[in-house]
């Protein structure tokens, strides 16, 4: 069953993991360069007083990663109506649907988890813990939004009613816009704590994304449309 899910996105997953690893390596080498050239003190101070820090688009990459994996997961179910097969496995529909959603999400989570560990090791040797808190907070929101984008994809790929699929897609675009207002890269933040309420907003977006996903599956089950 895991293979059935993993093989949907195996190639792109590996490609994206390599890309993320490259972004991570670039960030690590850039930081090393900065420390060597200006010293850790200057690196810390310029973070504190000038918000001089960038993830070098690693945060964008994380979102793209979750989105692309989700597209592969759900399109593979949608093509030729394979979802009909998946729903017929001898388990409850909730379990069958849950498996489809959670499996890919677990693979995304694994990458995020490893990335966060590595980032904490890399950045934690240079930045004070107060700065690490800001970075981890921003990253956590980034990861959560990645998960939400994943769920959103379900809402517009599985949804058989075109009108609703389009609405879900537009709401997803709107959420991306808001996300970048609330949690852009560190250097672009209006204030370090601009995203203070980020988790609440993520909660609201999660409510929508999850309802849209469940409604999409329910609609699909109630009226299979090719």
């Amino acid at each position: 069953m895991f293979k059935k899910e993993f093989y949907k996105f195996k190639d792109i997953y590996l490609l994206l993991v390599v890309l993320i690893a490259s972004f991570l390596a670039y960030l690590a080498f850039s930081l090393k360069d900065m420390v060597q050239n200006f010293g850790a003190l200057s690196v810390n101070l310029s973070f504190l007083f000038k918000k001089k820090f960038t993830f070098f688009h690693l945060d964008d990459m994380n979102l793209i990663f979750a989105f692309v994996i989700a597209v592969f997961v759900f399109f593979h179910e949608r093509i030729s109506g394979r979802l009909r097969l998946s729903l017929h496995f001898p388990h409850s529909s909730v379990r069958n649907i849950g498996f489809i959603i959670m499996c890919g999400l677990l693979f995304v989570f694994f990458v995020y988890f490893v990335e966060m560990m590595l980032l904490n090791i890399i950045l934690g040797t240079v930045y004070a813990k107060e700065i690490m808190y800001v970075l981890n907070y921003s990253l956590s929101l980034n990861y959560i939004f990645g998960f939400l984008l994943y769920i959103f994809c379900c809402g517009f790929i599985i949804e058989p009613v075109k009108k609703r699929a389009i609405v879900n897609f537009i709401v997803m675009l709107g959420s991306i816009y808001l996300y970048y207002e609330i949690n852009p890269d560190i250097y672009a933040l209006d204030s370090f704590y601009a995203n203070d309420l980020g988790f609440y907003y993520m909660g609201i977006v999660a409510l929508y994304a999850l309802s849209a996903a469940f409604i999409a599956f329910d609609n699909y089950k109630r009226g299979y449309i090719k």
């Binding site: 609405v167 609201i204 929508y208 309802s211 469940f214 329910d218």
Partner: peptide
């Protein structure tokens, strides 16, 4: 499912109240 639909509509209304 009814609750999900209400939640869906509720958040969508908030979304419109923000973007419109």
């Amino acid at each position: 499912m009814k609750i999900l639909k209400i939640v869906y509509l509720g958040v969508f209304i908030l979304f419109l109240a923000l973007f419109l």
